[in-house]
């Protein structure tokens, strides 16, 4: 019985950590969607390029890992901003599909550029995190250090984002812009700057998710595939709710892991999507909206 409990806890923690990464990528989807009404299909590629950028600075240029990570993420923020200024801005006013296809194309270009580096396309790489491969024991439950790191980093990032959106001018302006760009611009908020900021943040968040994924799945060309799981999380969260996206990501991660342990073989792969459908039937506007309604009811 104890052994079963321990196994259950182990799987739960792994699922939670995986869910955090789904959640972070989902956050980046939602951040961009809320501010610009564009579904970005290049988040997976941004995640991959971010991880490769850190790898290049660390292994290629020999920078210490913390500096490489900082500069890599900062570089991705700049890349997001530059892409918005140079390319994505031109899709404003065009049909939705234009922007979607544009992000697809940009993603393919990013992927293509990484494949031109022989060392990148030949193999997978590891970032030398000090905790990689270590095991911690929490009570009787052995937990991978990288999973703990992922959870801690997600909590810190979520806290930083909350502070940013609640207490900084730029964060408030971005929120205002997401709620109603017309009124925001009447209030003196530069909508186009906010778009740049949203893409920059979206790219930065994707890069952070890439960094967290690196010790779990290593750095390789296909690490961006995780976006396929993160997108349902974003939808489940309601596409417009930042906490909703994070919670939905964690929910999917845990559901997937527990289903793999408890349910008959072959069922686990259906579970996240079945749950997604049920949740959308029950809460058509997403988990985030359902939570918000619940909160409002409680407040009344």
């Amino acid at each position: 019985m104890l052994r079963r409990m321990i196994t259950f806890m182990q799987v739960l923690v792994s699922g939670f950590a995986t869910g955090c990464i789904y959640g972070l990528v989902a956050l980046s989807f939602v951040l961009i969607y809320k501010a610009t009404e564009t579904v970005s299909f290049m988040q997976g590629e941004l995640l991959m390029v971010g991880a490769f950028a850190v790898l290049a600075l660390n292994v290629g240029a020999g920078w210490p890992l913390w500096l490489a990570a900082l500069c890599g993420v900062a570089g991705m923020v700049v890349l997001g901003a530059v892409l918005e200024r140079s390319v994505l801005r031109r899709a404003i006013g065009q049909p939705h599909l234009t922007a979607v296809l544009l992000t697809f194309g940009l993603g393919m270009m990013m992927r293509g550029s990484v494949t031109t580096v022989p060392a990148a396309s030949h193999s997978m790489h590891r970032l030398p995190f000090p905790f990689a491969g270590e095991t911690l024991t929490v009570g009787p439950v052995p937990v991978a250090a990288e999973h703990v790191a992922v959870i801690v980093a997600t909590v810190l990032l979520a806290a930083a984002l909350t502070l940013f959106f609640r207490h900084t001018r730029a964060g408030l302006a971005l929120r205002a812009c997401s709620e109603n760009p017309r009124i925001a611009s009447l209030m003196g908020v530069s909508v186009s700057r906010m778009h740049t900021l949203a893409w920059a943040l979206g790219a930065g968040l994707a890069a952070c998710a890439g960094l967290m994924l690196a010790p779990v799945t290593f750095v390789h060309l296909n690490m961006g595939l995780i976006a396929l799981k993160a997108f349902p999380a974003a939808v489940l969260g309601g596409m417009t709710s930042l906490p909703g996206a994070l919670i939905a990501g964690i929910f999917l991660g845990i559901a997937e892991a527990i289903a793999g342990l408890m349910l008959p073989e072959g069922v686990k792969d259906i579970v996240p999507y079945a749950l997604l459908m049920i949740a959308l039937l029950l809460f058509p506007s997403g988990i985030g909206a359902a939570f918000a309604r619940g909160g409002a009811r409680l407040a009344r």
């Binding site: 196994t7 182990q10 799987v11 792994s14 699922g15 950590a17 995986t18 990464i21 994924l213 779990v216 799945t217 296909n222 595939l225 995780i226 396929l228 991660g253 997937e256 892991a257 527990i258 289903a259 793999g260 342990l261 073989e265 072959g266 686990k268 792969d269």
Partner: peptide, 18 residues
């Protein structure tokens, strides 16, 4: 016993536990 995963899976804790 046999257990599977989908391509691109990131977490194998449930399979190994099984």
């Amino acid at each position: 016993e046999r257990t599977s995963y989908k391509r691109g899976a990131t977490d194998f804790s449930s399979q190994v536990a099984r």
